[in-house]
Design a protein around this nucleic acid. Structure first.
Lengths: 217, 217
DNA sequence: CCAAAAGTGTTCTATGTACACCCATGC
DNA sequence: GCATGGGTGTACATAGAACACTTTTGG
């Protein structure tokens, strides 16, 4: 006789953040295994709420960027159980990212280039999330979610270089981002080692999607 | 006392096809309402299998293009029940599309420009699927899934015009698609009203994704 | 020989890319 | 006054857009 298989509906999150000039992902340790943060969907809760609550619990960040990534439901992905995971993809600003969350437990930020072995299919999920992040960065303005409210053009450029993994030309970068008209200068300017840098902020009213190039028109 | 709410996990499909020079979607009538085809996920079945089975059941098409679209799970979307829908997005070739499916019931192809009132949130789902189809058409080669194996360049161009809803320049279209090297000429040529047209087929080994244009580099 | 659809190149414009020097501040 | 990062413009190459006539068949 077969034991009835419980069908489990989980919400997981892949949260990205910048730290020490590298892109990091937040993981949680459970029974000795590193996993994406997640929990069962609340019966009366929207899926985004569950995801958002995870991020608040682990990072203390109240408002974070969040979008649905993919739903994983292969019958073999979790042994002995039918588990469907609706996975969300999040980003938090660099200045809100620190190793102790609101509820410090077995959580840790890992550089995406240096991940531990992940349980179940979570490694594959992170790989896909990373691909999506790079993709989106090229045709939308999600990147700003990784920066604090105010940033210099050099910081912005560095963020792009970190996530895309390639060097960009300073003059072309500045010209194009200013022409795109999605950021605005603020009167503040930040002192550092050399000449002070002007600070900018993202214009919330900016419509920042660009048409993709046609493969063939 | 509350009655326990059953959580229902459904697989739905949005299937697109070409007919009479218009883009159509397949719908099914249930209890007087037009809905996307769907059924409950089988306990031991991959989600794609369930989706694929729907398409076979309604169209008789054995191999169809299929990809995951989005997962809808708002607590209010289906009154009196918590229903999570993992929605797939499919396309079938024009020559396999006819109004009677393998199991002729209350199903019908509707032009996307002329849809009936849909139940639940299914109207919104179709709108999103359509947006995704147009988007994908511009940076990948999914469009070929809507055509029969052999097609003329004029048919190919017409398909693009139908889905994108805009006229394209014949010479530029031909040059670019031939340069992209994703289709190959066949010796066959089809007689019609005027001069015979060369037929082409999609090169299955073609890697047909293009980098998206950067919003800012 | 006429109707109907197939096929074919060139010019102009816009966009992307490569590249090197002066500027403002702190120490 | 020097070290450090901030800020700026131009010339060339590539890709996209606009555009009209000739060709092959059937009737």
């Amino acid at each position: 006789m077969m034991t009835p298989i419980k069908m489990l509906l989980m919400i997981h999150v892949v949260v990205f953040g910048l730290k020490e000039n590298r892109l990091h992902v937040l993981l949680e340790q459970q029974q000795g295994e590193w996993l994406l943060p997640g929990e069962e969907l609340g019966v009366d809760e929207a899926m985004e709420e569950t995801a958002d609550r995870q991020i608040r619990r682990l990072t203390g960040v109240e408002e974070s960027y969040l979008e649905q990534l993919y739903t994983y439901g292969d019958p073999q992905r979790v042994p002995g159980q039918r588990c469907i995971s609706v996975v969300y993809f999040g980003m938090i600003p660099a200045d809100t990212l620190n190793d102790e969350g609101a509820e410090p437990c077995h959580q840790k930020w890992f550089p995406v280039t240096d991940l531990p072995q992940l349980g179940y299919d979570h490694g594959e999920i992170v790989t896909y999330a990373l691909r999506r992040l790079r993709y989106k960065l090229e045709y939308s303005a999600v990147g700003f979610e990784l920066l604090p409210e105010l940033f210099t053009l050099t910081e912005l450029q560095k963020m792009y270089e970190i996530v895309l993994g390639e060097k960009l030309d300073k003059r072309n970068f500045r010209r194009r981002i200013l022409e795109a008209n999605i950021i605005e200068a603020t009167p503040y300017s930040r002192m550092g080692e050399g000449r002070p840098a002007r600070q900018y902020r993202y214009r919330a009213d900016a419509v920042a999607e660009v048409k993709t190039r046609r493969l063939f028109p």
